[in-house]
Simulated assay, not measured.
Amino acid sequence: MGVNSTALQLHLDSDTLEGRFCDFAVEEFACASLVALTAQDLAMILKCNRSANSSGSTPIWKLLLSKTSHVLNESLDLLTNMMFDPRNPAASIILDAIGEVRLNSFPDTYVNDPDFINIWFNHRLRPFLPAVSPDFLSCLTTKDFTCNTYQEIVQTLSHVKPNMSIIVQTAVLTRFIKPFLTRNDTADPGCLSGSNSSTEWLMDNVGPFSQYLLLQEILQLNQEFNPLEALSLLTSLQRVQLLLLQLPTLPEQNVIINTLFDHLTASPEEQKKIPEFLALLHEHLEAGFNRNFSCSAYKTLFARLDLALVEVPLNVASFITHNKVKLSALIPTDVLQFIASNQTSVM
């Protein structure tokens, strides 16, 4: 069935479309003559909150944006300060179409220009990025970004992350971040050389999307990564994994436990994370990871829990006391006797 753009064309020719841009389907615009369309007009078309049935397809939007290419950049500039609802099905489709019409047509030298990346990703594309599609992200990994321009994109995606669904957030990680950092055909594979610390590397190259990585995966992306140096960026689960992993690159468990508790008790914000950390630790030990926990580590853990009791708020101290009982059930008998004798001697 063909598309009838007659009614729309009459409004376009008579300049009477004001306030009615969302009344016409994307297909009607794509099939009309759009020579007289202004940047403001195109911006209004892009802003329409269309339903799934009227959101159009990537080929249709690509046709529409190709016909309005002369005002596309200016139109996107007008939308810089807004943020599209990622639930709007048209948002990801429009972004895919812009990628095909604009980004795929730029020479490779442009993607190595931080100013170009900043203009396009931090300004013109930013309103659409909360709805970024897996296909768009996969396409990005084929570009010859330098580490600097790659990091510019990661920072922009990090800023709009709160507006993304969890599905989109994990897609950013699996479709863009991990594929780029594991490429071996770049000048600096893994973007390791430009970072002065593990904290800086994780912030610059993975950003807040690191919350969806296992600690083992972070270490695979950067074999020089020092988890103890970047504790402030690790989730409670990653901290538990750090404690239970048995890797030659990590310090012994006693060192890890002491460093962890130094960090966990250092500030009120970190003290609030102790209950979640202990709950996850108990869950992992109960699931069988206790065979990765040495007798000495149990002793050090309980000693640090006792010290923490006088450093944390009452509600956290109560949780620690409760979890000490639960953890005790998982401790080998000889270690439990040692801890009991130590507590008796202190009393």
Rank of each mutant, 00 (worst) to 15 (best):
F128Q: 02
F128R: 01
L129I: 00
L129N: 01
L129D: 01
P130K: 04
A131H: 06
V132F: 09
V132C: 12
S133D: 05
P134F: 12
D135Y: 05
D135L: 12
D135M: 08
D135W: 03
F136N: 04
F136W: 12
L137R: 03
S138P: 01
S138G: 15
L140W: 12
T141W: 11
K143D: 00
D144F: 11
F145P: 09
F145E: 02
F145T: 00
T146D: 08
T146Q: 09
T146N: 08
C147L: 05
N148M: 11
N148V: 10
T149K: 06
Y150P: 06
Y150F: 15
Q151G: 03
E152H: 15
E152T: 00
I153R: 05
I153N: 05
I153P: 12
V154Y: 13
T156H: 04
L157W: 08
H159Q: 09
H159A: 13
H159P: 00
K161C: 09
K161Q: 14
P162K: 02
N163R: 04
N163Y: 15
M164K: 06
M164F: 09
M164H: 03
S165L: 11
S165E: 08
I166P: 03
I167A: 14
V168M: 06
V168S: 11
Q169V: 00
Q169P: 04
T170I: 12
A171C: 13
A171I: 00
V172W: 14
V172A: 13
L173S: 07
L173T: 00
L173I: 03
T174S: 15
F176I: 00
I177Y: 07
I177E: 03
I177M: 04
K178C: 14
K178I: 15
K178P: 01
K178W: 05
P179M: 08
P179G: 07
F180R: 11
L181C: 08
T182M: 14
R183Y: 05
R183F: 10
R183Q: 03
R183V: 01
D185L: 06
A187H: 08
A187G: 01
D188P: 10
D188A: 07
P189H: 07
G190A: 11
C191A: 08
L192I: 03
G194M: 14
S195L: 06
N196R: 08
N196L: 06
S197Q: 05
S198Y: 12
S198A: 08
S198R: 04
S198F: 14
S198H: 03
S198W: 12
